[in-house]
Design a protein around this nucleic acid. Structure first.
Length: 595
RNA sequence: GGAGUCUUAGCUCAAUUGGUUAGAGCGCCGCCCUGUCACGGCGGAGGUUGCGGGUUCGAGCCCCGUAGACUCCGCCA
């Protein structure tokens, strides 16, 4: 590929051993260093940099031309590889021992004044996104795109080796009432009807199991019309996997093997498998999160026994009304500033606490307005249970279990940030979170919703609870895979019995008529010999983001959208020609400009 | 739907308590410079301080509104 009329080598391939060769290179002018006489050009292509030297005494015509070069001009250079003058080698460059003495310079294209410097980190993200094709020239993004490719390739290679078949499923599919808001696509041929873009290939992959594919995967684009975050895009990519006649252990093993293959291929790292497993209950209890970041300690400690009979009414009454008292010990955080304390209090309130009590241990003294309510026995018990030492800062949560855990879990993460927790070495802490609740109560809709999705099966041992309609206690055969506190995937064993699926729909408040219109195909499929099956889907964008060490999935997507779902570069979404709407039988309800 | 932060030259930022002609570095243009690698030196151009309104003798700065960006909450089965 590199040898053609434009070039014989890439810009990171010439070494000492090539000295004397006649070569051609092509690329972008990374930087010019024009000394009036001698001119240095760093030529850049996707592989690296090579220095070109123009000397007026050798070729005045070329030097004159080179003098006009500016950053990001596209040029082609032919010439001879030469050793750099002794003492002027650049050890920071792979090609630092050599330079090119050109005999020919072709200016293929000139660049205008640049929207931002390519070597600095512009903070203005909309400017970057507007000129994304230019932004992507920066080595960091060239690296990220190639990393993403390597992850996808390792995924395909591994799953292929395990007998999985990649099957494409429709992008134009059907809207379903459960889950996220759908993107809709109007049908021209059937006016008034709409396709929906898939939120995930969930139903199709289950139908492929009924079809006897047995082991399916797909690197699938998914679409959800919800508000965005740094780690959420309206369209994103999943590594989607499903298999028949399997148990969760089989899915865990294939996922672990695949992730191991990915880390081997991209980072040459052997990750530790199998991953630890914790139940949802334990994760929330100990870390205040269903996606625990275990790279640092600061676990939630239950203080129920200590304060059951306490004279401190706030704690005692929380326990008496069925709640919990829990705490985290932030080591060496007694120096907390007023601003930090205020922020943590805000966080506590945001997640439902009435306030935030904390104790600073400074100069051997426990500093807090609540300490005076504690007995000596309580203080001693606290000290030993939380391993309190000089310089620590202890934060309390007294509330319903869910609220106390979530509040302390959020504080735990924020405090770790405030303490500038940075792991000494790269840590890849994978774990499985299992036994999620099957249902969650929606106070907004006043009904039970599926926590994962409506096709998730209850755990076999919880079937009786399901029959007894003890819905909050029913656990699902569902699991998430978590990496460094980020949920990178989740899945479940599916319901394959039509009767059980009907019972599930019934619990979710989906009427028999709606079941038929919305899920009829799936229900019929379950009646035609559906095998037991289950699977998982991993967020490719998030996974690549973590491997790349990026903070946002936008940095590992070639053309992402901003947090209002706008592509700043192409200005989409955009208005369309009225004739297009007429063809679709669509009339806009209102024209914003009239407002 | 809600909260917070931000918006000054092409880019990154500054401008004291509301007070002179809104500055600096990079980039750009011109001149000089023959071994640099973020080359260097001298000079120059470049601004409706996001937009609209208000308070004031006077607003980049204070107030109200509005637009946009980013982060978060809700939402994301």
């Amino acid at each position: 590929m590199t040898r053609n009329m434009y070039r014989t080598h890439d810009c990171n391939s010439l070494r000492k051993s090539d000295i004397g060769k006649q070569v051609a290179l092509a690329g972008w002018v990374n930087v010019t260093r024009d000394h009036g006489g001698v001119i240095f050009i760093d030529l850049r292509d996707r592989e690296g940099l090579t220095q070109i030297v123009f000397r007026p005494e050798e070729n005045a015509q070329l030097a004159k031309q080179a003098h006009t070069l500016r950053s990001e001009d596209v040029i082609q250079v032919s010439g001879k590889v030469a050793a750099r003058l002794p003492g002027t080698e650049n050890p920071n460059l792979g090609t630092g021992d050599i330079e090119i003495i050109p005999s020919e310079l072709k200016i293929l294209n000139r660049a205008d004044d640049l929207p931002f410097p390519i070597d600095a980190e512009p903070h203005n993200e909309d400017l970057r996104m507007t000129h994304r094709y230019y932004d992507l020239r920066r080595p960091r993004f060239a690296r990220n795109l190639r990393l993403r490719h390597a992850v996808a390739k390792a995924t395909r290679d591994y799953l292929d080796s395990q007998g999985f078949v990649e099957v494409e499923t429709p992008i134009l599919s059907k809207s379903t009432p459960e889950g996220a808001r759908d993107f809709l696509v109007p049908s021209r041929i059937t006016p008034g009807k709409f396709y929906a873009l898939p939120q995930a290939p969930q139903q199709y992959k289950q139908l492929l199991m009924v079809a006897g594919v047995e082991r399916y995967f797909q690197i699938a684009k998914c679409f959800r019309d919800e508000d965005l975050r740094a780690d959420r895009q309206p369209e994103f990519t999943q590594i989607d996997i499903e298999a028949s006649f399997v148990t969760p252990d089989n899915i865990f093993a294939v996922t672990e093997g695949m992730l191991a293959a990915i880390f081997r291929a991209t980072r040459n790292i052997e990750i530790k498998i199998p991953f630890d497993r914790v139940t949802y209950r334990e994760a929330v209890d100990r870390y205040g999160s269903d996606k625990p970041d275990r790279r640092f300690e600061m676990e939630l400690v239950d203080l129920g026994e200590i304060f059951r009979e306490s004279g401190f009414k706030v704690f005692r009454s929380a326990l008496e009304s069925g709640g919990v008292v829990k705490a985290i010990n932030a080591k060496r955080f007694a120096g907390i500033t007023i601003g930090q304390a205020d922020e943590l209090t805000e966080i506590a309130k945001l997640y439902g606490a009435k306030g935030l009590a904390f104790i600073k241990i400074e100069n051997g003294e426990w500093k807090s307005p609540i300490v005076k309510f504690f007995s000596e026995t309580e203080k001693e018990a606290l000290q030993s249970k939380l391993k309190i030492e000089e310089g620590d800062c202890v934060f309390f949560g007294a509330d319903k279990w869910e609220i106390a855990c979530e509040v302390l879990g959020r504080l735990r993460l924020r405090i770790a940030e405030m303490q500038k927790f940075t792991p000494v070495a790269e840590i890849w802490d994978f774990l499985w979170v299992t036994d999620f609740p099957l249902f969650e109560w929606s106070s907004e809709e006043n009904k039970w919703n599926a926590m994962h999705h409506p096709f998730t099966r209850p755990k076999a041992e919880d079937m009786p609870l399901f029959s007894e309609k003890k819905f909050p206690e029913v656990r699902a055969e569902a699991y998430d895979v978590v990496l460094n506190g980020v949920e990178i995937g989740g899945g479940s064993m599916r319901i394959y019995e039509p009767e059980l699926q009907d019972k599930m729909f019934e619990t979710l408040g989906i009427s028999p008529e709606n079941r038929q219109t919305q899920f009829g195909h799936l229900l019929r499929a379950l009646h035609l010999g559906a095998p037991p099956h289950g699977g998982i889907a991993l967020g490719l964008d998030r996974l690549v983001m973590l491997i790349a060490g990026e903070q946002s999935i936008r940095d590992v997507i070639a053309f992402p959208k901003n947090n209002r779902s706008v592509d700043m570069m192409s200005s989409s979404p955009a208005e369309v020609d009225p004739r297009q709407l007429r063809d679709l039988g669509i009339r806009l309800a209102s024209n914003k400009r009239d407002a």
